[in-house]
Simulated scan of single mutants.
Amino acid sequence: MTRYFLIAASRDHVLGGVKNGFAQAGHGRRDYISKPAKGDWVVYYSAKEKIDETTPCQKFTAFGQVTDDEPYQPDPNSDFKPYRRDVEYQPGQEAEIRPLLEKLSFIKNKKQWGFYLMGGFREIPKEDFEVIIDAMTN
Rank of each mutant, 00 (worst) to 15 (best):
A25R: 02
Y44G: 05
K48E: 15
E49F: 03
A25N: 06
A135L: 12
A47I: 04
N20H: 15
K35T: 08
G92A: 09
K111M: 13
M118V: 07
R84T: 03
K35N: 03
I33M: 03
E96K: 15
D86A: 12
P36E: 00
R98Q: 13
F22D: 08
Y89S: 01
F106D: 08
V42Y: 01
A23L: 09
G28C: 09
Y45T: 03
V18W: 05
Y45N: 08
C57H: 15
Q112E: 11
T54E: 13
C57G: 07
A62I: 02
D86H: 14
V42F: 06
V87T: 01
T61I: 09
I33A: 04
D134C: 06
N77I: 15
N109F: 02
G119H: 00
E88I: 10
K110M: 01
D40T: 10
F5P: 02
N77L: 15
L6M: 13
E123Y: 07
G39R: 04
E130K: 05
F106A: 02
K35M: 09
L6G: 03
Y116V: 08
F60N: 09
Y83P: 06
F5V: 06
L104Y: 08
Y83A: 14
Q58N: 13
I33W: 00
A8L: 01
I124S: 00
G120D: 09
G21W: 14
I133V: 15
D128Q: 03
Y83L: 06
R11D: 10
A95P: 05
V131I: 14
D79P: 04
P36S: 12
D86T: 09
F60Q: 08
K81C: 12
I33Q: 00
